[in-house]
């Protein structure tokens, strides 16, 4: 790697001032696990990195609001999120998802904000956060704005976060009666990037209400499978519905081939894993 200026502003406001949206060699630094790979390969040669390590308590905390909403600071390490007692209790799908994300050492360093801002389409959490209806709070020179995680990534490593903005925190509405699950498939080693990940969630009043089925990794960006969602809405899960939902999902999914599988192989995975994720969510206890 080549030398660069490393600054560690003591507040979010200072950090925003140190960004230079028109200079791609100036970038924010969170845990650095992804950026380090880009720097070591020589793909990214920074002039200045703005470390958010000391940029304020708001970025570092996890808390449940009185209304049950979960707020996670952008600098919360993925392992801290995985082990947080309140997350394990109220949002078990998040801990379950994190347990299979990369490996222990990556989770010990990588942060939620970095995971989302990097916008690698193979990331595990975006599909889950979309299924749960999560939003991100972005801060910039004109103040703050909330954007849904659905629509945050616009393509490979591209997001709606502008060059002069930073992710401050993620907000996840209370699960309430929502059931949720995430199922992923890695086709090489267990800790490899997934070939696909499927997150599902729905409100359970005896029938399936407001379902979301979100496909990640196999598509250019995390994508809701709305035909499959419509198919299961208002119904109750049975074997025939699982099969039809899987088939509908595979039909509509715009999957892309890569080293982890061809299009036809991944379509088959979508069919199988949509059914698996739905079955897992249906089998687990609904939140009280």
């Amino acid at each position: 790697m080549t030398p660069f200026d490393l600054v560690e502003p003591p507040s979010l406001g200072e950090a925003l001032k140190l960004l230079e949206p028109d200079d791609s060699a100036v970038r924010p630094l969170a845990g650095g696990t992804a950026l380090m790979l880009l720097m070591k390969s020589g793909f990214f040669r920074p002039k200045r990195l703005v470390s958010l390590r000391a940029a304020g308590e708001r970025l570092a905390r996890i808390r449940i609001e009185p209304n049950g909403e979960l707020r996670i600071g952008a600098m919360v390490r993925l392992a801290a999120l995985e082990w947080a007692p309140e997350v394990r209790r109220d949002f078990p799908v998040i801990g379950h998802t994190l347990r299979t994300l990369a490996n222990v050492r990556v989770r010990n360093v990588a942060t939620l904000g970095g995971h989302l801002a990097h916008a690698d389409p193979h990331s595990d959490l975006p599909p889950v956060l979309i299924a749960l209806g999560a939003c991100l709070v972005l801060a910039g020179p004109r103040g703050e704005r909330a954007v849904p995680v659905e629509g945050f990534a616009t393509g490979h490593y591209e997001t709606v976060c502008k060059g002069d903005e930073l992710i401050v925190e993620a907000t996840i509405p209370p699960l309430g009666r929502r059931r949720a699950a995430y199922a992923k498939c890695t086709t090489r080693s267990a800790d490899d990037w997934p070939a696909l990940g499927i997150a599902v969630a729905w409100d359970d009043d005896g029938a399936i209400r407001s379902p979301r089925i979100v496909l990640g990794a196999a598509t250019e960006r995390p994508t809701r499978l709305k035909a499959a969602e419509a198919l299961i809405a208002g119904r109750t899960l049975d074997g025939a519905l699982l099969t039809r939902a899987g088939e509908a999902a595979a039909e509509e999914a715009d999957v892309v081939a890569d080293a982890r599988g061809s299009v036809s192989y991944k379509k088959q995975l979508v069919k199988v894993y949509v059914a698996r994720a739905l079955r897992a969510a249906g089998a687990g206890p609904a939140a009280p």
Partner: peptide, 27 residues
Amino acid sequence: CSQGLCGCCTVLVDGHAVSGCLFLAAA
């Protein structure tokens, strides 16, 4: 491996295992 995959560069930082090859010394 230089990519955080193999674990040969593991050290504990504040009790947490990290890949020393992906961890800036400044941190």
